[in-house]
Simulated scan of single mutants.
Amino acid sequence: MSSWGKYKPNESGKNSWSQEEAFEKLTTFCAYQERCPWEIRRKLYDKGITDEPAEQLIAELIEEEFVNEERYARSFARGKFRLKKWGRNRIRMELKMREVSEELIRKGLSEIDPEDYYDTLLTQTEKKWETTTESDAYKKKFKVTQFLMNKGFEMDLIKEAIEDLSNDQSQ
């Protein structure tokens, strides 16, 4: 229960779902976009459904192929990389928070093409470098590095990208 954060079950009984209604609503919820059991548990918790009834619903959704954690991990990694330009570290951390197994996280990250990954890192580095208003080169490098680390890129690749950018600008 500690991984639920601020979520409290619906104590008033208002807007709570019956087991049948919950399954129907969850199939729509899962059909809209890929979901993991953690997200479904959170949704059920909001509606006052916990413990065994929640686990039964999740098992049924998995059996009916509405929920597939590997599919979720792959989709999540692709989407966050392409749309939000997140690095592998950030994606890994977010998937861990959603209680996805290490093996499935690895499979998800394998969806990211290494060349696309580095090209994206270079593009993000250039954009941030151009928009950072800092006259001191050392401080500017630090700010750009911090930004890229927050996005989840690896330190060794960040250093390489900044060097590539510096070499391009000095030529």
Rank of each mutant, 00 (worst) to 15 (best):
E103C: 01
R106F: 05
S75E: 11
M97C: 07
E24T: 14
M93K: 14
N150M: 11
Q171A: 01
T125D: 00
D51Q: 06
L104Q: 13
K96A: 04
R74C: 14
S110T: 07
P37L: 08
T120A: 08
E65H: 13
G5I: 06
T133P: 05
D119E: 13
Q56Y: 08
S170N: 14
I58F: 12
E52H: 14
L165V: 00
S135W: 09
M93L: 13
R35P: 08
A31F: 15
F76I: 02
F66T: 03
S3I: 02
Q171H: 03
Q33M: 03
E111N: 07
E70D: 12
C36Q: 01
E21M: 04
W86V: 01
S3F: 06
L148H: 02
I91W: 00
K8G: 02
E69Y: 05
W4N: 09
E69I: 09
R74M: 10
A137E: 11
F76A: 01
G79I: 00
S3H: 15
N68R: 15
Q124W: 00
E94C: 03
S170F: 12
N10G: 02
N10K: 11
D164V: 00
L121N: 01
E103K: 14
F142D: 09
S16C: 09
I105S: 05
K85H: 09
T132S: 03
K127P: 00
R88A: 12
R71S: 00
S2V: 13
A137Y: 05
T123R: 09
C30V: 04
Y45H: 10
W38T: 06
L122V: 03
L109F: 00
S18H: 02
D168W: 06
F76S: 09
Y32C: 04
A31C: 04
T132Y: 09
E55D: 13
